[in-house]
């Protein structure tokens, strides 16, 4: 069974500030360090682990983006042991929304014979949580989201998903399927220098929309993003003073009478 892993590149979560461009058309990427989006790194690592366990024959990476993303994915994902990377890059995707990305990925993944698609549960840039479920719908496959335990057994699988409220559900299904990876599924790996050097030889297949049988109209965005800016300002806070008993009294009074949340 071959595994397809969808991975994208996003700002390092340790980036202290994200600022918008002056005209609000996007974020200012100057000086930002880009990494493999952390949940996607869980997906890549899980794919590699399944290959090591003999559950999968090969792991192929897919991304929608540009040349600068290839550099990050080479060192951060291909170097972990994936076979190759398919990059969907087309000027018509510049303003792509989630459905446009899902259509591009579905077309690219549909050209191979995959038993399992692994994705991160969400990307850490737009936090949209849309592409994997849309991709599954377009492929006509079931999907399981927020998975923190996955067992592959022949063409069957058992996955544990977090449905909220601390409730975990164990579900069984038959491959092919799309699985979205949550924290706890696998310890993410970071490539070592020799592997990063070796990854320079790995193949990157560039595809335009035309190569995938798609047109610009197929990826015309329904959702558009504008007016990028700062978070709404927080009212200025106040430090309480005195001994513990005094501060506790002031706090309860403030929560009741000033903030009115008690």
């Amino acid at each position: 069974m071959k595994i397809a892993v969808c991975a994208k590149v996003a700002p390092d979560t340790a980036t202290p500030r994200i600022t918008a461009k002056g005209d609000g058309s996007g974020i200012d990427t100057t000086g930002i360090k880009f990494v493999v989006s952390p949940y996607d790194l869980f997906a890549v690592t899980e794919g590699i682990v399944l290959k090591e366990q003999g559950k999968a024959s090969a792991v192929h990476l897919f991304t929608v983006g540009g040349d600068s993303d290839v550099t990050v994915l080479r060192g951060g994902a291909l170097a972990l042991g994936a076979e190759d990377l398919t990059l969907v890059d087309d000027p018509a995707l510049a303003e792509a929304d989630s459905l446009a990305v899902a259509r591009s990925l579905a077309a690219a993944i549909g050209q191979g014979e995959f038993g399992l698609v692994l994705c991160g549960k969400q990307a850490v840039d737009h936090d949209n949580v849309q592409v994997p479920a849309m991709l599954a719908e377009l492929l006509g496959w079931p999907h399981v989201s927020l998975v923190d335990d996955l067992v592959i057994d022949g063409d069957g699988f058992t996955a544990t998903r977090n449905v909220g409220g601390g409730v975990a559900e164990v579900v069984k299904g038959t491959l092919p399927a799309v699985v979205t990876c949550d924290k706890g599924l696998v310890e993410p790996r970071y490539a070592k220098l020799p592997d990063i050097m070796k990854a320079k030889q790995k193949k990157v297949h560039k595809k335009t929309l035309g190569d995938l049988g798609l047109s610009a109209a197929d990826v015309a965005p329904a959702a558009t993003y504008t007016a990028y800016g700062e978070p709404p300002p927080r009212p200025k806070g106040r430090m309480l003073e005195g001994d513990v008993a005094g501060m506790v009294d002031q706090l309860v009074d403030a929560l009741r009478n000033e903030a009115k949340v008690l």
């Binding site: 980036t15 974020i27 850490v124 936090d127 558009t224 504008t226 990028y228 700062e230």
Partner: peptide
């Protein structure tokens, strides 16, 4: 977006 470090408008057409 970006875990609350920035905000944006979204419009579905």
């Amino acid at each position: 977006i970006y875990a609350g470090k920035a905000y944006c408008d979204v419009r579905v057409g």
